[in-house]
Amino acid sequence: MDNRFNHKTGQYMLKFSPRNYLGEEDFMVAACNETAYRAVKIWPYWQHFSLCVYGPRSCGKSHLAHIWVDRIQKSLPRPIPIPILPAHRVNMKNINKLANENDFLVIEDMDTEINEEAFFHLYNFYNIPGKYVLFTAEQPLAKLPLRLPDLKSRLNIVPCIEIMQPDDEMLTALIAKLFNDRQIIISQEILDYILKHTERSFEFVSRLIAEIDDISWTNGRAVSVPIIREALKNLTRNQQMELFI
């Protein structure tokens, strides 16, 4: 939490760091993610030892991974550490240790460059009763540009469930949640304005709310339509600049 004195109002303004609520009760189930949510929830009755949840950035893949981990913890006599690792950290130096010490594993961001030999061994290590892996990615594993045929053939049979871009109902709930995470109260007018003018993507909405919060805090002003316009303009300009990087 940060604070700043507003000389116009004679009051201190408090800025709360956004909190990540990753419990199952915090996950917003909608048409775009219901299939993925139910697929995670039916563990341990998966038909395969692994599952991949894929979709656009900021769509809730990591949230589902934490729900899965929590579900496992509640099924065990005592809690155990369950690693949640980015895919690029899996290599030939740590694969044996990972597999020997962990019956459950979450591997995120499979779209990044991976050590294919290590993942070939990981697949074989976990393809036995009682061991499970949850993958996350932005695309199905079958579309990864893999060079190792044996790994590609194995990942092609991993069930992959998509989280799609949000509809208006989901966007409305997401906008309200992101402001609530920052302990910012907004009016229905503000919510409707954002919904009307924002891009229809999880990532853009997340960046927009962060930009609105930063502008509001920097200028010592409550969230308003002019601030939203400024935030939208900033993000649009940043996106255009990224095209030339």
Rank of each mutant, 00 (worst) to 15 (best):
F179V: 02
I128A: 11
L144N: 00
N100Y: 09
M92P: 05
Y21T: 02
L51M: 15
N219K: 12
M28Q: 08
E117Y: 07
V223H: 05
L105W: 05
F27A: 04
R207E: 14
D2H: 12
I245Y: 13
E162T: 02
F179P: 01
S17F: 04
G55S: 01
E211Q: 14
H88D: 10
M164L: 15
A118S: 04
Q239Y: 05
I215R: 11
M13I: 14
P56V: 02
W68Y: 12
N180L: 09
E24K: 15
L208T: 00
L14F: 12
G220H: 08
N127C: 09
Y21I: 07
L141M: 13
L195G: 02
M170R: 03
F5E: 11
P83W: 10
C52K: 04
L51Q: 09
R154E: 12
N96F: 01
I80S: 10
T112V: 11
K93E: 08
T198G: 00
V133C: 13
G55F: 02
E117G: 09
K41L: 15
P44W: 14
V205E: 00
Q47P: 04
K196V: 05
Y54P: 02
E211I: 00
A30V: 04
Y123Q: 09
P129T: 12
D26E: 15
I72F: 13
L76Y: 15
N94D: 01
P140N: 11
Y54V: 03
P56N: 09
S224V: 13
D150G: 05
E24G: 08
V29Y: 07
A118L: 05
Q165Y: 11
H7P: 14
F125V: 02
T112F: 09
W46G: 08
I84M: 11
P56A: 13
L122Q: 06
A176L: 13
S62H: 05
E199H: 14
R237E: 13
H121E: 08
L122G: 02
R78Q: 14
P166T: 05
I175L: 09
P140R: 12
C52V: 07
D2F: 09
F27K: 03
F120C: 00
N156L: 07
A137F: 06
E203S: 13
A39R: 12
T136S: 14
N91H: 10
F16K: 10
E34W: 07
V205Y: 01
S216N: 10
D168F: 09
L195R: 03
M110K: 03
D213P: 03
A99W: 08
C160K: 06
G23R: 14
C32D: 05
E113V: 07
I67E: 07
H66M: 14
V158P: 08
N124V: 08
A231W: 00
G220I: 12
S153D: 08
I95F: 00
I157F: 09
C160Y: 01
L141G: 01
E199M: 12
K15H: 02
L85I: 11
P166G: 04
A36V: 06
H88W: 07
P166N: 03
I175Q: 02
W43S: 07
D103I: 00
M1L: 08
L122S: 01
Y12G: 01
P166D: 03
E138M: 11
Q165F: 09
Q139F: 06
P81A: 04
I228T: 01
H63M: 11
L148A: 06
C59G: 06
M164C: 10
D2S: 11
W68L: 10
I163M: 08
